[in-house]
Simulated scan of single mutants.
Amino acid sequence: MDSGVIEEEFVNRTHLPHTLDAGIAARARLGLIVLATDQTIEHEWRLIMTGLDGVALYESRIWNDAKITPETLRAMEARIADCAAVIMPGLPLQVVAFGCTSAAMVIGEEGVFAKIREARPEAKGTTPVTAAFAAFRAFGAQRIAVLTPYRDDVNRAVRRYIEARDFAVPVFGSFNEEDDLRAARIDVASIRDAAVELGRDPRVDAVFVSCTSLRVAEVAREIEAALGKPVTSSNHAMAWHSLRLAGIDDRLPRWGRLFELPLSSHQR
């Protein structure tokens, strides 16, 4: 029976002409290892990097315990290489950033970098504390007010680590939240007010907010305006450091003083 459907000739065109460009990572391809519990770092990095044509961000997640203790932080060391390996395999990365401030101090920056190099020998490595030290030097700051969400034993380790690198910490403050899932919910106003309170101490040159869970990027300029002093945080400093390590020197004053500064040539 005639269905009334007119069959048309099927056309299958293969090997259509095309050209290749450099893709969305024409200037830099950045890798970021994010804590499994982290709610903040990707949000802040994407805000900062929006509008940077040719800069692409790729992430993987690393398992961590939500309870922040020296033991749970140290346990991440064995997982770093595998997490770096799954970020865009087969394509070179300019930078791999490890997104945990306190773990980088407990493991040690060189320990983190060694694990990154196992998987991505072509990439430069950074951590939040590595980036913070680079930021302090760019600011010309020596005496740092530090704000964290951590409990006391982690705080003591943070202060020792910073002071061992020839920076002074005359003022230290903490929200004492050992649960990373709660730390991410500390509101921006609380962070801003605490940073301003600590930074007002006349003995300090700059403020550092430690922890990738804490939201600072959108109020960095506001805090700086209140203090007349530079401010940075784990996410803020590491985004800047990753860009500068990758050769991206764009000035981004919206995000505060740091994003108007270069990285010195000996730090690249």
Rank of each mutant, 00 (worst) to 15 (best):
Y58E: 10
A56K: 07
D38M: 03
F10C: 03
R13S: 07
W45Y: 11
T69W: 01
A28Y: 05
T72V: 03
L47E: 12
R27L: 04
I6M: 12
E7R: 15
I33K: 02
L35P: 15
T50L: 08
T14G: 15
A25T: 04
Q39P: 01
E42P: 01
L16V: 12
A36S: 15
A25Y: 10
R13Y: 09
L16M: 12
E42N: 09
R27N: 10
Q39W: 03
T72M: 00
L35T: 11
M49L: 13
I68C: 13
A26C: 01
I41P: 04
E71L: 02
E42L: 12
F10G: 01
I24P: 11
G51H: 07
K67Q: 11
E9L: 12
R13I: 15
F10Y: 09
E71C: 04
W45Q: 04
G4A: 06
E71R: 08
G31K: 04
T37P: 05
V5P: 00
V11L: 13
E7Y: 09
I24W: 10
H15S: 14
E9H: 07
E9T: 14
G54Q: 06
G54A: 07
L30C: 04
A28V: 06
P17T: 09
R13K: 13
A56T: 05
L52W: 08
V11I: 14
V11N: 08
T69E: 02
L20I: 10
R46D: 05
V5R: 15
H15K: 14
L57D: 06
L30R: 05
Q39G: 08
E9A: 11
R61K: 11
T19D: 06
G4T: 07
K67Y: 05
E8K: 13
A66E: 09
N12P: 00
S60Y: 01
P70Q: 07
T50Q: 14
W45I: 07
N64G: 00
Y58G: 00
R46F: 07
V34D: 01
T37N: 15
E7M: 11
N12R: 13
H15D: 14
E7A: 13
L20Y: 08
P70V: 07
I62L: 12
L32W: 12
A56E: 15
G31E: 05
L57H: 05
F10P: 13
L52A: 08
D21L: 03
V5G: 02
E7G: 12
I48S: 00
T40Q: 08
G54F: 06
A25M: 02
T14N: 14
A36L: 09
D53N: 12
L47N: 10
E7F: 07
T72H: 04
R13V: 15
E71H: 01
E9R: 14
L30W: 07
I6G: 04
L16G: 15
D65P: 01
W63Q: 08
E44Q: 10
V55F: 03
D65G: 02
L16F: 09
A26F: 01
I24M: 10
L47K: 13
R61W: 06
R61P: 00
D65I: 00
G31Y: 05
T19V: 13
W45N: 03
L47C: 06
A66K: 14
A28R: 04
R29A: 14
